[in-house]
Simulated scan of single mutants.
Amino acid sequence: MTDASMPNESGVTRKISGSNRNLDLFRVRQIPDSVESRPVPMSVTEPISLNKPLSKSFYFWLMAPAILVLAFISIYPFFWMIYMSLHDVDIGHVEWNNFANFIKLPSDTRFLMGWVLLAQYSAMCLTLQIIIGVFLALALNGTRLEKVLVTTLLMPMMMAPLVAGMVWYFLYNGTFGWYHWLLQSLGILGPKSILASSNTAMIGLVLVDVWQWTPLITLITLAGLKRVPQDQLEANMVDGASPFRNFISVTMPNLYPVLLIAIMLRFMDNFRFIDSILVLTGGGPGNATKILPVYLFEVSFKFFKLGRGAAIALILLIVTIILGKLLVRVFDRQQPSKV
């Protein structure tokens, strides 16, 4: 029987004899982990700093002035509004009224009608703005003149609501208004202005809001279109999907969270902005356009019933917060769950 010597992994020669020789010669050599090449992390030493790390209290004192200003202009008026809603407030006279301001509201027909008109106004504005805004965003997305056209579309949004109301007031004027002449020439309007009839006054207000704030929906939708995955669109097109089917199955699911944000912003604005309404109709003719914020303005600053106005404002604020929370909950449900 022949013996053979073979160095082992540590370099020491060992003898291999007989039947085990062939088996050992063709056995896969086991390489220890220490021999394998792998990236060795380099220890990075932080540079020596001569400044001591700042404490959390330092940042708090930096933010303290801004916190105090925000508290003064928001928190204090909020609690003062609650206080006034529970009292009869007059100039130089405040008297507890045992929740009378809230008790009388359900029997106030103008208060209830204000809610109905506000719902109609908000629904019409949001519907038209979403439809037109998404259409304009799809038409502008990827075009050569996209930046120029978007800048042009944003001009109405940069205008103050009061100024926008004045511009449309002259356009709607029954004597020299260009829009009134156009609608009358088409047979849509009679001799009366669009704002002078209770049947068309609300439509006139909706058109003003749509003209001014549709660019905001367009801008938000354009930002959402930039994040639509192009590979999914191309895959659907290869499978034979039509552009409309592509829009429904791929584009809309990606736009859904963005549109919810736009709806929430415009929803809250419709509950707050009354500048153009006061300029155009002031709540008239009659009470045809007296939405709840306009009625709140009249009660508080026209008839100086500040306690009653505070009660209406508090209820309006609570309803706005509740509806905003519902929209946020719907938005959260559409977000992908984190693993």
Rank of each mutant, 00 (worst) to 15 (best):
I322C: 09
S17M: 03
E95Q: 14
I277T: 01
F170Q: 07
N101E: 13
V28Q: 12
R38P: 01
L292H: 01
M6R: 10
V150E: 10
V89W: 06
V279K: 02
G282N: 10
V279Y: 03
K302R: 14
N97G: 04
S5I: 07
F99R: 07
L233C: 06
M268S: 11
M81Q: 14
Q30A: 04
L138C: 13
P161V: 06
L68C: 10
L314K: 11
M155C: 10
N98I: 05
S242T: 15
E146I: 03
P243G: 05
K104G: 01
E36T: 10
K104C: 00
R272D: 01
R245P: 02
K56F: 07
S300M: 09
Y169L: 14
P41V: 05
V40M: 06
S34I: 13
N20Q: 15
S122D: 06
C125H: 07
L62I: 15
L126E: 07
P77H: 02
Y295T: 11
N22F: 12
V163H: 00
V40G: 01
A119M: 12
L25W: 06
G11M: 06
I194K: 05
T2L: 13
L205E: 08
W61H: 12
I67N: 02
V319F: 13
G284M: 02
V210I: 13
L68S: 09
F304A: 09
N270I: 02
S300Q: 04
C125I: 11
L138H: 14
M42C: 07
L140T: 11
W213A: 02
V330S: 05
M159C: 13
V89M: 07
P47G: 04
P156S: 05
M1T: 04
G204R: 12
F99A: 13
G240R: 07
E9L: 08
P156I: 06
V279M: 09
M237V: 11
G324T: 14
R14A: 08
T251Q: 04
P229I: 08
S185N: 15
S74I: 03
G114R: 02
Q30Y: 04
N254V: 11
Q184E: 11
M252S: 05
Q184D: 10
G283Y: 10
P53V: 06
I261C: 05
G11D: 06
I277P: 00
D332P: 00
S198M: 12
L219F: 09
V134N: 00
N270W: 01
A262T: 05
G307Y: 07
G11Y: 03
V28L: 09
M81G: 10
G18Y: 03
T214D: 02
T151I: 10
L86S: 14
A201D: 05
L280G: 11
Y83W: 15
L207E: 05
L138N: 12
L259R: 02
E298I: 06
R38S: 07
R21M: 03
F135I: 15
L118Q: 14
R144D: 01
N173H: 15
L233P: 03
D209R: 11
G282F: 12
A119H: 08
F247M: 13
K104H: 02
M81E: 13
L292A: 01
V150R: 14
S43E: 14
P253M: 04
S185C: 02
Y76S: 01
